[in-house]
C-alpha cells in the first residue's frame, strides 16, 4: 500500500469512494481496491481523475454504476461506452472464438473483460485483422484453468456447426418465453442436436439465463445436447411394442452398440404412431418392422 503516491485530490477522491462502499464491506475491501489502484497507477502519482477512471474502467457492475454515481460522475447509462471493436476486423472464426472465451466470464464482469481482452487482441494483431491464432494465444497465455481447458476444448469442436442460421430461427419466433420450445425444436431440426453455441446465442438474444435453456433442453425428451452419430436407431418401447418384444429388441441392440466403433445413436421412444408395426423401429427416419427391421439393423451394426 505504501507504494501508492497520492496527489491530494487523489486521496480525497479515494476516501469519498470508500465512504460510498457499504459499511460492512468497507474495511475488508480496502486493501483489494488499493492493490488494483496501484496496478492502474503503475508507479505514477494517483490523481482524482485516475481514481475516477479506475472506477469507470476496472470495477464490475453493478458496483461500478453505484460508485460512479457516488463520485458524481456521469450516470452509468450515459457513461457506458460502446463495446470496443476490433480495429481491423476479424478473420475466420476469430470473433466467435472471442465471444466463446468471454462466455466463461461471469455476467457481471463480462463487459470489463471484453474491453481489456479486445485491447490485447488488437495489440497482437498489430493493426491487421484479428486472427484465430491471436485468440488462441490469449487463451493460452492469460486465461487461468479450468476456464482455459474449457475454452480450448470448445474451440476444438467449434465450427462443426455454422450457427448463422440460429439468428434466422430466433427472428422467426419473436416474443417471449412461450416461443422458446419452438426455437429449440427448429434449432434441433437444423443441426440434429442443440449445439452449445446456439444455446448461448439464444440466451443472449432472448435475454434468458443459459441455465434455463439447459434445463428446458434436458428436461424435455425431444432435445439432445449430443451430436447424433451416423445412424440413428429409434426403438419403440410403448406398452404395445413392449408386449410384442420391443424392450427385448432394445436390449439386444443396446448390447450390440455399446462397444466402441459402432457409429450408432440409439434412442427409445414411447410411441412411433404405428402400433400396427409392433415392435416398431425407426432407422434414420424410416420406419421398419419385424424381419425388415432385423435385416436393416444387421446391416448397420
Amino acid at each position: 500500500m505504501s507504494d501508492i503516491k497520492w496527489l491530494p485530490d487523489g486521496q480525497k477522491m479515494f476516501e469519498k469512494l470508500m465512504a460510498a462502499v457499504p459499511e460492512p464491506m468497507r474495511e475488508p475491501i480496502r486493501p483489494k481496491l488499493l492493490q488494483m489502484l496501484a496496478g492502474k497507477a503503475a508507479g505514477q502519482p494517483v490523481s482524482g481523475e485516475l481514481v475516477k477512471k479506475f472506477v469507470d474502467e476496472d470495477l464490475p457492475e453493478p458496483q461500478r454504476s453505484a460508485l460512479m454515481a457516488a463520485l458524481g460522475m456521469k450516470p452509468a447509462g450515459a457513461a457506458a461506452t460502446p463495446p470496443p471493436a476490433a480495429a481491423a476486423g476479424w478473420e475466420g472464426k476469430a470473433e466467435m472464438m472471442f465471444e466463446r472465451m468471454l462466455q466463461e466470464v461471469p455476467d457481471m464482469m463480462r463487459e470489463v473483460f471484453r474491453g481489456k481482452l479486445m485491447a490485447i487482441a488488437n495489440q497482437k494483431a498489430a493493426g491487421g485483422p484479428i486472427k484465430e491464432e491471436h485468440i488462441t494465444a490469449i487463451v493460452k497465455e492469460i486465461v487461468p484453468d479450468p476456464f482455459k481447458t474449457n475454452i480450448l476444448k470448445a474451440y476444438a469442436t467449434m465450427g462443426d456447426v455454422d450457427i448463422s442460421k440460429v439468428e434466422d430461427i430466433i427472428a422467426k419466433h419473436p416474443g417471449g418465453d412461450e416461443n422458446l420450445i419452438a426455437i429449440l425444436h427448429d434449432v434441433q431440426a437444423q443441426y440434429g442436436y442443440l449445439p452449445r453455441e446456439a444455446l448461448i446465442l439464444i440466451s443472449q438474444k432472448k435475454n434468458i439465463f443459459l441455465s434455463k435453456l439447459y434445463r428446458l433442453a434436458t428436461t424435455y425428451k425431444a432435445f439432445t445436447l449430443d451430436k447424433p452419430k451416423k445412424n440413428v436407431v429409434t426403438i419403440c418401447t410403448g406398452s404395445g411394442c413392449h408386449v410384442c418384444g420391443g424392450s427385448e429388441l432394445l436390449k439386444k441392440v443396446e448390447a450390440a452398440v455399446s462397444g466402441d466403433g459402432a457409429d450408432v445413436t440409439l434412442e427409445k421412444v414411447r410411441c412411433l404412431g404405428c402400433c400396427d408395426l409392433a415392435p416398431a423401429v425407426m432407422i434414420n427416419g424410416q420406419l421398419y418392422s419385424g424381419e425388415e427391421a432385423r435385416a436393416k439393423l444387421a446391416e448397420i451394426l
Binding site: E178, I181, A182, T219, Y220, K221, A222, F223, R270
Partner: peptide, 8 residues
C-alpha cells in the same frame, strides 16, 4: 399450434 417438448 404449439409443439411440446416431449414429456408425459
Amino acid at each position: 399450434v404449439k409443439r411440446g417438448g416431449g414429456a408425459y
